[in-house]
Design a protein around this nucleic acid. Structure first.
Lengths: 133, 133
DNA sequence: GTATTGCTTTACGTTTACGTCAACGTCAAG
DNA sequence: CTTGACGTTGACGTAAACGTAAAGCAATAC
């Protein structure tokens, strides 16, 4: 029996299907294509999305949740996909990785701070509440 | 001798001073005021920023680094500042805190995933590089 | 057949987050 | 007293990230 799940390399989806699945509109998906973030195959004029496109879309959406602009997300995705046969290219990619990590770690610090403050605030609120009872 | 640092409750700053200090433009600061995120005193027509405004600005900018829209940031700041004398109000605040925490924790998961992927990618790049040498 | 459904492109509209003038007040320095 | 430096309020511009409407092709549904 043929695999019917996502691990099937030959499986494909329509724009509506992946849009629904990732909970975005088809317009959004096309917008990402306009910006060069995904480039689905075409069957005639119709877009055909494969596993690779799903992976990219997932990366894009996570990047968005993290607050990155689409252009920056594109450079990140391109970084992952860029050919890196020569040492000089690899060195460059490694430097980019380093830059990205710094960015992400700054965000993590901000996030931890925000969560800590939230926790402290909650503690005070609960104390106030206890005091009222 | 009078305290000359930020802990001085009476200290105040001009729009230019805090803009420079937080590395934003005065236009940005005024924009935040238009949206009701900060409301500095006025000496005549001139804006006067105090410690409370600095705290808010810091919160705003961290929110921005985390990718929150300004309107959402306002609801968060208002949450911190809202009067919460009655139990019903405290309950509401606590529910809001819970919602915010969920959001932040989702972001943290995304962030951890992104960092993990980046680490794995770096590992592969370094392996490729070693293989070339 | 025609009608509906789903895909396509083109193109203009909208919201957010400011940038960028313009036009003016005000206060200290020269 | 005029020149700057810094402040003010509009008001319009812009880039990003889509939304939305128009108009058309193409296959299935009746």
């Amino acid at each position: 029996m043929p695999a019917a799940d996502v691990t099937d390399l030959d499986q494909s989806w329509s724009i509506r299907e992946i849009a629904d699945e990732f909970d975005v509109t088809h317009r959004t998906v096309r917008h990402y294509e306009d910006l060069g973030l995904i480039s689905p195959e075409r069957r005639g004029t119709t877009r055909v999305y494969r596993r690779r496109d799903r992976t990219r879309l997932a990366l894009i959406l996570r990047g968005k949740r993290l607050g990155f602009p689409l252009e920056e997300i594109r450079t990140i995705i391109d970084l992952y996909d860029r050919p890196r046969g020569k040492a000089s290219q690899l060195e460059y990619v490694l430097s980019q990785i380093d830059e990205r990590r710094r960015d992400l770690e700054q965000r993590r610090r901000d996030l931890e701070d925000a969560l800590a403050e939230l926790g402290e605030f909650e503690r005070r609120c609960r104390a106030d509440l206890d005091h009222l009872a």
